[in-house]
Amino acid sequence: MNIEVCELSKSFGDTKALDRISFFLPEGAIVGFVGPNGAGKTTAIRIMAGLEQPDSGKVMLGNLNMIEYPDQVRAQIGFMPDSMPDSDVIRVWEYLDFYARAFGLRGQAKSSAISRVAEFTNLASLPDKMLSELSKGMKQQVSLARVLLHDPKILLLDEPAAGLDPRARIELRACLVKLAQEGKTIFISSHVLSDLDDIATGAVIIEKGKIVSHGKLTDLSASAAGEFCRIVLSLLELNEQILEQINGLELVESAIKSSNKQIMVKIKGGTANYHSAMVQIFMTGLPIIRTERPDAGIEEIFLKSTKGEVN
């Protein structure tokens, strides 16, 4: 189901957390929601989850305004907050059981839903642990399992990857991809931009409560790359001299060492100068073994579109 956010505004006292933001989430897409701290991501997601009343604006799920009829869309939305479940008197299965009951599942339907999500999120060995005994990654799994209990069509995830180790992140990513394949629309806010790169099909970038850009990732990266032409050079060997040599070239704006044997070169004047710059670089006669022109990932689009200001 499509979600359309129209002109959403929300203030807390004098702070304008959201300033008439609008964007569109197509069905089955994984859309990243990125922005600096305090940009208003959590606020927007909470409004979409029906927890907060906006000052103005609409969130349309199909033809239904979710702001006015939150009770009618509950079953279709799964909201994962940025806080983790925690309690030293509740076991994992009880936590899931409570939410299953809350979503109206009873008897066989309830137990099969619980075992389904436990299997999906690899919780099978944990159900008898207390929530407080779990590690962060496990809590995240439990939280994800809770979100999936009622099989929602739309997932709103607020920083699901925060504090996870690389392995847990990869697992989370795999889960999300699987879910998207099942046709769920996933809206995911995250700081860890590289997490979104491989899986997201679109991005919404927000800063100081305003949307700075949004759309399909391919479109966004093309437009970002347009002004930001860069080349990655892999060399047989790399030292300061070579770096200086490249930096000295006429069409090179900057060259920095990006890894042991790689240089990231930024071209003056953008894509238009790409070919001339390449010619200049090869004319130096350096031992270049490979060149690459990376797409602009979410990280760059993000860095490019935002100024790092917070309201």
Binding site: A49, L51, R74, A75, S87, A102, G104
Partner: peptide, 20 residues
């Protein structure tokens, strides 16, 4: 326990379920 629920996000989360 209730206080903890109120002060963490747990109570708000209960409101995202169909429970009235």
């Amino acid at each position: 326990n209730w206080r903890k629920e109120r002060c963490s996000d747990a109570l708000a989360l209960e409101h995202t379920t169909p429970l009235t």
